[in-house]
Amino acid sequence: MSVEAHEVIPIPMPREESIPQAARRKLSSPWASGLVIFITLLWTIPTFGLLVTSLRPKDQAQSSGWWTAFTDPVFTLSNYAEVLTGGQTIPGGITPYFFNSFAIALPAAIFPLVVATMAAYALAWIPFRGATFVFFGIFALQVIPLQMSLLPLLQMFNLGWSIGPIPIFPDLNQAGSNQSIFYGTYIPLWIAHTMFALPLAIFLLHNFIRQLPRELFEAARVDGASHFLIFRKLVLPLTVPAIASFAIFQFLWVWNDLLVALTFAGGTPDVAPITAYLANIKGTYGAQLHLITAGAFIAIVVPLIVFFSLQRFFVRGLLAGSVKG
């Protein structure tokens, strides 16, 4: 937030090579490289241990540390086969949950982005009284622990909500049943995730959108373009890096969520995400390390793919928001 840093940030992305090559070479040292490699190894070992354990047969996995797999290499893919489709130990497979996680995470990553980008634009470039107050208010909402929102929200989805006689949200229960029309769908989950994501999303996107050059907007307004047109033709294309980064962030968050999913969608194979499956097998098959680790690895493989393939975007957008603070 220091003024200097703020003024100098190129838009929309800082240069990759800002310090001259000569300076870089001079500064680089084998010491530094060694240290970085050491920390990198340290950071990777836990996950690597998970992968190795998941590839070991049951007996080995339970009775010896995973590192002994290198002196006594016995590997198998059968743990994965069992977890994917169900087998002798675990009757139900992870597969339906895997797809649920996609069906939950895709819309739950996109909806908050759409809403947040629009709000961020309004707060940044449509002048109105109280805009600053609204912005800081939204920023401050980050402090609310989402656990405390679960019950009121659930009540709203299922029982409706009204202030006195004025209905604010309709009662969506099917006639004669205590199941809301949302029951067994992902809809409440998408909405809940959208709500919880908004403060951070608006905050980050606002910081990005505010940096766009003022002249751009002034020129467009002079030409008589409406806010809707400006938003579609100017803001959206220019904001892509930030949107993409936040989309990845939100996708990871939703994919990894357990609490919100369990509360709003329940734990049946029809709707529950992969984390619910993982939590359940961890609870029942505590001793079956070879299967739990295989399940855990399947669950993290998608976030890892998403992350590794899109990390360029990720870093950019994150930077845009955070560097500006």
Binding site: L150, L151, L154, Q155, F157, N158, S180, T263, G266, G267
Partner: peptide
């Protein structure tokens, strides 16, 4: 539907009308 969070989830869902 089975859950290892049953004891915490059930009252929440009842109170939540679900």
């Amino acid at each position: 539907e089975g859950s290892d969070q049953f004891e915490a989830q059930l009252p929440t869902r009842i109170a939540g009308g679900n």
